[in-house]
């Protein structure tokens, strides 16, 4: 009994998410002691505001990866949605609210386009979204002829970029709401649990009577909707809409999801793990640029990327390393 208990504690400790929380705590502890003005309320609010768009994309990416898929098009779609929003508010003189609503709708439609190709034609998600990665960005560039920037939005809308409620920036509330939504969807609904089952074994899930294709489509549509919401946040924060919005965000989102313990092959992962992954990356890149020695050398940006890459590799390799150690320890006794 007691040995069973200790084993379960040990396996709990080896759980990816728990290790990641430990990393997060270490990061925070280290930066509180060594990084300049890290723990100030203004800086904490910076961290939330700066990571909101990538965070949203990561939360939406998580169910996609859970089903064994991937969506490389979310960053480009963010750019396309930002441009479309600009077209509606500026060229067509729509009011902000209907324009925002239609933008989100179009984001969902773009997600549905991915979903249709992936499910109806059974094409590999990596390739489909590699194509739409190029297509969506290309459309954004074509619409703006590459050069046009939409500026001077409605002041009320731009205010959202700086808006705070109960001390937390709006971005934090949106991120929290999205985390709650995806958390409930993935972990508490039968519908969402099937994502995991599909990722684990699509054939088995089909035999269990679950409409695999229809369920696989849903995460891509949600990713499209989320990318549109992120586009609105991005536009409000930067006070402009241009075709290059969200460049490279797809890889940052995937990094957060994988760091958060979701298997890139699908079938396992948690939303709170993803949330921890987002936090670990955001805090690392904010904090490392405040460490005096790094500040002095002027290498904050590069170091943040390098350390994120190293963390990602470590997180992936940790289970394999533990297994190696265990088998090495076992061998002498047998």
């Amino acid at each position: 009994m007691s040995s069973q208990n200790s084993r379960s504690i040990k396996s709990l400790l080896l759980r990816h998410e728990v290790l990641l929380v430990l990393v997060l705590v270490l990061e925070i502890f280290y930066f509180l002691n060594n990084a300049r003005n890290f723990g100030t309320p203004d800086n904490l609010s910076n961290i939330v505001r700066h990571s909101a768009e990538i965070g949203l994309l990561a939360l939406a990416m998580m169910p996609v990866i859970l089903t064994g898929g991937i969506d490389l098009s979310v960053g480009s779609l963010l750019g396309l949605c930002a441009v479309l929003f600009g077209v509606m508010t500026h060229d067509w003189h729509w009011a902000t609210l209907p324009a925002a609503f239609v933008t989100i709708l179009l984001g969902g439609l773009a997600g549905a386009f991915n979903a249709t190709l992936i499910t109806a034609l059974r094409l590999p998600p990596l390739i489909v979204t590699l194509g739409t990665y190029s297509l969506f960005r290309g459309l954004a560039e074509a619409i703006t002829q590459g050069t046009k920037t939409y500026r001077s939005f409605d002041p009320g809308f731009l205010g959202l970029g700086e808006f705070r409620f109960l001390g937390l920036p709006l971005q934090g509330w949106v991120l929290g709401f999205a985390a709650l939504f995806f958390g409930i969807l993935v972990h508490l609904t039968v519908f969402g649990r099937s994502f995991r089952a599909i990722g684990y074994s699509p054939e088995g899930t089909r035999y269990a009577g679950i409409p695999v294709l229809r369920r696989t489509a849903m995460p891509y549509i949600l990713a499209g909707l989320t990318a549109a919401v992120a586009a609105l946040l991005f536009t409000a924060r930067l006070q402009q809409a241009r075709a290059d919005a969200g460049t490279g965000y797809e890889l940052a989102a995937i990094t957060a999801v994988v760091l958060g313990g979701t298997s890139i092959f699908g079938g396992s992962g948690t939303v709170y793990g993803t949330l921890t992954g987002i936090a670990a990356i955001a805090i690392l890149s904010n904090g490392i640029s405040r460490v005096p020695a790094v500040l002095k050398a002027g290498i904050g940006g590069e170091l943040a990327s390098l350390l994120t890459g190293a963390l990602l590799l470590l997180a992936l390799a940790a289970p394999a390393l533990v297994r190696l150690l265990q088998s090495a320890r076992k061998q002498p006794t047998t």
Binding site: R36, N37, D42, K296, E302
Partner: peptide, 27 residues
């Protein structure tokens, strides 16, 4: 004087804003 140097390492158009906002809280 003390000299701090940082800048975007990728093409993310939001990066410069983020660095400025971080420097504000850095003091």
């Amino acid at each position: 004087v003390d000299f701090l140097f940082d800048g975007p390492t990728n093409t993310d158009p939001a990066k410069q804003n983020e660095i400025v906002e971080n420097w504000i809280t850095l003091g």
